[in-house]
């Protein structure tokens, strides 16, 4: 078996041979930009507008890291990746951060040589059905045909759910996500399942979005977050704390609009956040105004959420579990001190 593995290794040799060196921060500083892996177009998370500019809650993480390093949120370049390609692109060094609505699971964390730097969106897998079906609960779906994407955790979750409830179903897994929507729209399957945020986004592509509803069941935990390569703790810290800075900023009431005034705040927590007090930035290999730059150029977590996926966007996603811990949600960042 070992011998076979060696021969097998040949196939991917060219791929892995270009692996980046350990000090990602130095590489990024030398390049002058952060190379970020994103989706091929998921509204609200990472999507390109007509002018070719990327935006979304996942894109904001990349912009925050760029702002922390360069003081310039635009010092980013984006690589659109399919669900299948994403981990290979990261481990081969093609990208510096993978911020592509990626679920944090134990296999991925422990077996793929990756580290998850946080959870920027707490999601869960849901199911969408045509209203005409008259179904009100996923437990009524025995015998249904279900469409989903290949290369994700959704296939596993939906199988678990139906097996656990002793229900028959047939699962149609399609690689191209637009083709999944089309298959559901054309009636090849009765149910469309993916993360609930994804359902909200893909629903907009249906011919009659209002004729479809998302069922109340959430059948899995899908903590989505940015990913980096294992073995570079400095880079891991920078990505993780760039994200934490956005949450801390929201908690402390520091936003892109008032961050300049907050520089003269008496609150020691805010002083440390915006870099007036302490040298948290330089200890990480950055400048002390790292968090100030993030808040100034990207905004705090709440601002980003409202602008990308919140109730006033086409996705209309309530804060729910993504509210701050102090407001009954799960978003919680360790203190800066």
């Amino acid at each position: 078996m070992k011998k076979l593995a060696f021969i097998g290794a040949l196939a991917g040799a060219g791929l892995i041979a270009g692996m980046a060196s350990a000090a990602t921060l130095d590489d990024v500083k030398a390049k002058g930009f952060v190379q970020c892996g994103v989706s091929q177009g998921l509204p609200g998370f990472s999507n390109q507008n007509d002018a070719g500019e990327w935006s979304g809650i996942d894109v904001a993480v990349c912009r925050a890291v760029a702002a922390a390093i360069f003081g310039d949120a635009q010092a980013t370049r984006f690589t659109p990746l399919s669900a299948k390609e994403r981990f290979t692109a990261l481990s081969s060094g093609e990208i510096d951060i993978l911020s592509r609505n990626t679920t944090w699971t134990m296999t991925r964390d422990t077996q793929l040589g990756l580290n998850f730097a946080g959870t920027n969106y707490y999601d869960g897998q849901g199911m969408m059905v045509p209203k005409a079906l008259g179904v009100t609960s996923a437990l009524e779906l025995s015998g249904a045909a279900i469409c989903t994407n290949t290369g994700t955790t959704t296939e596993l979750n939906i199988t678990d759910f139906f097996r656990a409830n002793n229900m028959d179903f047939s699962l149609i897994a399609i690689e191209n996500s637009d083709e999944v929507v089309r298959a559901y729209d054309s009636g090849r399957c009765d149910v469309f399942t993916t993360d609930r945020s994804g359902l909200a986004a893909e629903r907009l592509k249906l011919t009659a979005p209002d004729d479809h509803m998302v069922l109340p069941e959430i059948i899995s935990k899908e903590p989505l977050g940015p990913v980096v390569r294992q073995g570079d703790d400095q880079w891991f810290n920078i990505v993780r704390w760039s994200f934490f800075a956005m949450i801390n900023a929201e908690e402390l009431g520091v936003s892109s609009e008032n961050v300049d005034e907050m520089k003269s705040s008496d609150n020691p927590n805010i002083q440390r956040l915006v870099g007036v007090d302490g040298n948290f930035g330089t200890e990480m290999g950055l400048t002390n105004d790292w968090a100030y730059n993030i808040i100034k150029h990207v905004g705090n977590y709440g601002e980003v959420y409202e602008a990308t996926v919140g109730p006033n966007t086409p996705l209309k996603l309530e804060r729910g579990v993504n509210a701050l811990w102090s407001k009954g949600g799960l978003q919680y960042a360790p203190p800066i001190r």
């Binding site: 078996m1 593995a5 892995i16 481990s91 793929l112 199988t159 149609i172 294992q230």
Partner: peptide
């Protein structure tokens, strides 16, 4: 390749073939 795979802390070999799967195929 082998050295780089070790550096990446990735598993290798064909042991996964005998693991059970959890997903349905129509």
């Amino acid at each position: 390749t082998i050295e780089n795979l070790e550096l990446l802390n990735k598993k290798s070999g064909f042991g996964f073939l005998s693991q059970t799967t959890g997903f349905a195929i129509f």
